[in-house]
Amino acid sequence: MEQYTLATQLVQYLIAGLTIGSIYAMVAIGFNIIYNVTEIINFAQGEFVMLGGLIMATLCHWLGVPFFLVLPLAMLAVTGIGVMLDRLAIRPVRQPTVMTLIMATIAASILLKGAAMLLWGKDPYDVAAFSGRVPIMFLGASIQPQNLWVMGILGVVVAVLTHFFGNTIVGKAMIACADNPSAARLVGINVRRMVLLSFALSAGIGALAGIVITPLSLMDYDRGAMLAVKGFGALILGGLGSFPGAVLGGLLLGGIESFGAGLVSSAYKDVFALVFLLLVLFIKPSGLLRSGAVAKMKRF
């Protein structure tokens, strides 16, 4: 075997970290969209990712057409599940407090996981890589085309959302709900519709994350919770409610895990990421990219 230099290894760690970090970031963005409108953390977000991957795998198997035709279908299916989640678990709750609504999402996540186990069984599923599995060599490190897809899709999601929240009426209305729901209602915004939309949107983004990671890591019914926890960490690290924060938080967590595993100890890689998160919180209680004033809680 030829010499495998430290520099090459570092590049390899960076790529691995950015890839998994992009997934965490997408989960965190999904959390953010719902949080911004409702103040709740949707603990079923990880199940959206899992469902995205599994539905994609099944549709690819049934239809046998190229991935870019199946992808919108799979996203649409999960978006529908997101809408159902709002209709059947969030909206029926009487006296909605943040605590009861979060509990409703936890119950829903258990339900979705159980349903997925019944429908797909316990075996993992695979989706063909979008553009083959021939690695690209870069500074001696090898990159799967799918790694680039993952990072690229994160870029696309960020660009589209920036445009949506900055330049469209609906997007701005959603932001208004986040700032002050009663005021938003007064100016004629249908807050309920915005909540519904936020669930649909974040389900779609969750599904996309699942679809794009499955060719690399496979997908099974039991993956959702772990991804939700990591995404939640990324979200808090970057600062609740902040989209740039979600991206930064995700990439940082992914990077720390990867470099920690490679350079220090793979057994304690999650500990490094979490200790870093705790230290950041102790120094800056509202996350990296959020100021204290904005982060103050209205209710909990």
Binding site: I41, I236, A267, L274, L278, L281
Partner: peptide
């Protein structure tokens, strides 16, 4: 230090603490 945090930040910090302790038990 943790209880200075509020709401979801507190939830995440305690969650992180719990996972760290779990990993120590495991390792």
């Amino acid at each position: 230090p943790t209880l200075k945090l509020k709401g979801h930040y507190l939830a995440m910090a305690t969650l992180a603490f719990g996972i760290i302790v779990f990993i120590i038990f495991n390792e």
